[in-house]
Design a protein around this nucleic acid. Structure first.
Length: 271
DNA sequence: CCGGCCACCTGCGGGC
DNA sequence: TGCCCGCAGGTGGCCG
């Protein structure tokens, strides 16, 4: 899926088309996503103005006066703004029709995504309330991670991918950030010094920030709102590079499954 | 509370 | 050509 940079890129791409526009209708062709798509969306949203399009973790929030449409892209989801007359393709599950003839179209082959209506404060909803801090804000720092890691024996890669600890660090960028900070992904979270957590946070923020600036990583079925690819893939130093030489030391990149997810690291640079 | 594992679903590439 | 296997960006839930 889209990791956080892809979600951020999507939000920024959709915002100018959607903010301030009135919804003309909602078409749901497939309700069976990760959770069933909320019922009565068209009746609920028709005639209502999209106040803002924002992001919290990997959720895209279309905020209305009386509630919020939460869209999660799962592993293979994609949102694009297209003319409403654009022919439907396979896996185009939901259209949010706008009053200017465009629609926000949700496609998701694997159907791990979700389209959910929440009334009231979305941050208090069961979808968002338990989530940890955003990775790109000030209160996420080395000291925070270090404190949270006390007594934790889980691999640091799983630790930083746990949304209750910090949101938005997905499988690609977890490996990349650990490489940048010289930390082996299998290391127990509770056995990493504060100074190294400072490095890790800096690495998480720089890798995510650079990926956002580059328009996201393009992998398999992801592409940008307007269709053109992201350009960060070439900047990946370890992800899916097993057997290739590390750019820093020349040793061969390893692949190891951690927490049932493929993980990549340089055995010489990361400890 | 924590950690490990499973599930959800479709598509694609490689091996035979 | 076709089948089968393993693999893929997420994350809630269950169990010990």
């Amino acid at each position: 899926m889209p990791e956080l940079p892809e979600v951020e890129t999507t939000v920024n791409g959709i915002r100018p088309f959607a903010e301030g526009r009135t919804v003309a209708g909602v078409i749901v062709r497939q309700r069976q996503l990760r959770w069933p798509v909320s019922r009565g969306l068209s009746q609920k949203l028709s005639g209502k103005v999209i106040q803002s399009v924002r992001r919290r973790a990997k959720y895209i929030m279309f905020e209305f006066e009386r509630g919020t449409l939460l869209i999660h892209l799962g592993m293979s989801g994609r949102l694009r703004v297209v003319p409403s007359t654009t022919p439907i393709e396979k896996h185009d599950h939901v259209d949010l029709l706008l009053d200017d003839g465009h629609c926000v179209r949700f496609r998701d082959p694997r159907r791990f995504g979700s389209v959910i209506w929440v009334s009231g404060d979305p941050l208090m909803s069961p979808y968002l309330y338990h989530l940890g801090p955003e990775p790109l804000v000030d209160d996420f720092d080395g000291h925070y991670l270090y404190t949270k890691a006390r007594g934790r024996r889980a691999a640091v890669k799983n630790f930083i991918m746990d949304g209750r600890i910090v949101v938005g660090v997905g499988n690609i960028y977890a490996s990349e950030a650990l490489f940048r900070s010289g930390i082996r992904p299998t290391r127990a979270a509770g056995r990493i010094a504060l100074e190294r957590y400072d490095l890790l946070v800096t690495a998480i923020q720089s890798v995510l920030g650079e990926a956002i600036a580059a328009g996201g990583t393009t992998l398999r079925d992801y592409s940008r709102v307007t269709g053109e690819p992201g350009y960060f893939e070439q900047a990946l130093k370890v992800y899916e590079r097993q057997g290739q030489p590390c750019e820093a030391c020349g040793d061969l990149i390893k692949r190891k499954v951690i927490g049932q997810r493929a993980s990549y690291y340089c055995p010489s640079c990361q400890h």
